[in-house]
Design a protein around this nucleic acid. Sequence first.
DNA 1: CCTATACCTAGCCACATGGCTAACCATCTC
DNA 2: GAGATGGTTAGCCATGTGGCTAGGTATAGG
Lengths: 107, 107
Amino acid sequence: MANHLDSFFGAMADPTRRAVIERLIAGPAPVSELHAPHDMALPSFLKHLKRLEAAGLVRSEKAGRVRTLHIEAAPLAEAENWLARQRRLWEGRLDRLTALAESLDKD
Amino acid sequence: MANHLDSFFGAMADPTRRAVIERLIAGPAPVSELHAPHDMALPSFLKHLKRLEAAGLVRSEKAGRVRTLHIEAAPLAEAENWLARQRRLWEGRLDRLTALAESLDKD
DNA sequence: CCTATACCTAGCCACATGGCTAACCATCTC
DNA sequence: GAGATGGTTAGCCATGTGGCTAGGTATAGG
């Protein structure tokens, strides 16, 4: 398989990286601004950004000294769809169980 | 923060574990049945199950020699809601950008 | 009671992850 | 062109993760 889901869920499994995503949803931002609220050395923080970019959750462009990051919404939607599908299957199963229970009650 | 989201996303960031979840959505199953389709030694596989249980995605009960696993749907729903909220914020932002663009066009 | 079954524990290994410091570009700004 | 600013690279370290083998425990079945 080796899905995007691997790298997506891996990328989201860290509060620093989720915070970056939440910030970027409000609009693009340069590295230094993203870094500011996190009590962590820049190189450590950059690793998180690299991971987000590798997972395709984020794009970045450099202009002069400044690298600006943008969010990439598609993977978010993809993961949400995956979860929604699991939930529907689960709910479908519950429905069948309910129906089964009712049919057994009749006997 | 140290959210459930940490352990949830961490748990889902592995194809073996996602496959277990997908299987359990169809209904409860014992360890050996869950293990069967995965080409991996049992102890390695057990670690994955422990991780799912630690993340609260799965419950398990032992009867005699057999431990049976059940899925726990709530965390799935919670993560789906988190993603949905992000998406709505994102879409809201796009709407505002569109409105802004239109208002600029009028000038 | 003996054996097979089903799972569990302990302990090892290689590699990934998440943090750091130190030192290094590159580009504005004065 | 000298400094300050914004990122980047290299390399170190501790811990976590994902795999393994070997061996153990507990119950089901004959």
